[in-house]
Design a binder for these strands. Structure first.
Lengths: 245, 245
DNA sequence: ATTTGAACTGTCGCTACTGACAGTTACGCA
DNA sequence: TGCGTAACTGTCAGTAGCGACAGTTCAAAT
């Protein structure tokens, strides 16, 4: 029961919002569980490519260099599966389902990294995707049992850490959004513009004149430092200045 | 330890992909945990409204009617918090932070529904959001302890059920994302429009005629089912169809 | 009491966007 | 060989967006 207690304690720390430092989280996880390595990736889909927003891991610089140099991200099935789905991705499962990714696992074995693990998809609002990959140093059988008991802990821990990262990112991002604060009316007109309404329609909806709608929109454009309504709405959605929900 | 075993068994059932039937999942959850009621909601942001894609719950028709008739969705802080964040939302926490939502909790008490519970955000790919709300019939103190032990189980179960629902939905043919895949040029044109460029500028940048830019934009608008470039860009940003930054 | 900021309105004129008309070219696939 | 899809182009007429002109009203803060 000591192990159970340690797990619950760790989850409580995470939920209370401590631990926005990836290194701290990784240490905590490795102290609490029998984990060899961890990787946290936040990315944004763009066409068929991925734009990496955040990347933290404990595999070390050498492993990262190998991964990059051999272009293993192109064949990594865990990336594809975890960033495209919602279900935990078992490493060996991915390995068997995608024979073309063998070089990835061979590279891991070369540099002494285990090929057992699981990747937890962490989808975020606004279409971004993230994953937490967990790598363990166990035999297949041992891992099956361990995973069965602790997948729920991994999932909750991953979710809470991911939440902390998102909130932290929002803080850091709010430096640039400080001068971008919009008034209530500006937000309203932008919201309706984002819904495809014309000035006349917005005026009717809000019960004000068309000119006034233009006035608010002009102010919003000036504050956001953009040149068109279209760009203003794009910025507003990106910075969550207008409700996405 | 029998309870632990039952939980692990249930999670295994979920992970093996059984249980795409909400009623089945709810029964399983209520049999495994001390849960009074469950609610699963999948929604899509639209203007400042919510377009409900899926809704299943065990609160009964009467409660649903009350909720709808009194317009409680407009003040429900759990919807706002859970659909806009990634962190579990404690009901009583939401109640204290948003005094204006008191009618919601009073309505619950009126019809004999407990006000203790937690809502787990389940963000999905493509900008959609979902949540699983869990309602329990316990005292506050009892719930604190129970929650501490089982939040991880709830989170994993919720994620797995949500995954099953998404996969099932994808099978059935997702209406909203079916025709939303944009071609390379459509993406490029939208991206530049989101950057505030005019048709003439985009034409110059891409080395094509202004008419052709309009052609791609028109196709993009049609695919996204929107009426203006502004709305198209808003949708594209929300659904991560064009790169942010 | 003055200032600051939000909310609000009117008109002119130019530019940008949008729909509807009617096409061509190139590529891959059945 | 046809069929579908993506990329590409032209013109016309109407609507919408946008900048620059010049204001009023109200409430809160200094």
């Amino acid at each position: 029961m000591t192990e159970q207690q340690a797990v619950l304690d760790m989850l409580e720390i995470l939920e209370c919002g401590g631990c926005v430092e990836p290194a701290h989280f990784f240490t905590l996880m490795r102290r609490t569980f029998r984990i060899a390595h961890l990787l946290y990736l936040e990315a944004e889909p763009y066409a068929d490519e991925l734009k990496v927003c955040r990347l933290h891991h404990t595999f070390g610089a050498y492993a990262a260099e190998i991964y990059r140099a051999r272009g293993l991200h192109r064949i990594d099935p865990i990336l594809k599966l975890a960033l495209g789905g919602v279900r935990p991705v078992e490493w060996t499962m991915a390995r068997h389902r995608f024979p073309e990714c063998e070089p990835l696992f061979q590279a891991a074995q070369e540099i002494g990294i285990s090929t057992e693990g699981v990747a937890l998809p962490l989808p975020s609002p606004a279409g971004r995707m993230a994953l937490l990959a967990i790598n363990v140093n166990m035999s297949a059988g041992e891992w099956t049992t361990y995973r069965r008991h602790h997948l729920r802990d991994f999932q909750l821990a991953a979710n809470l850490f991911h939440a902390a990262m998102l909130e932290h990112g929002a803080m850091a991002g709010s430096i640039s959004t400080r001068d971008m604060r919009l008034t209530g009316r500006e937000t309203e007109v932008l919201t309706w513009a984002a819904a495809g309404k014309s000035y006349w329609e917005i005026a009717t909806i809000l019960g004000i004149s068309e000119r006034t709608v233009r006035f608010f929109m002009t102010n919003a454009r000036r504050k956001l430092n953009v040149v068109s309504n279209t760009q203003a709405v794009a910025q507003a959605v990106r910075h969550a200045l207008i409700p996405s929900v």
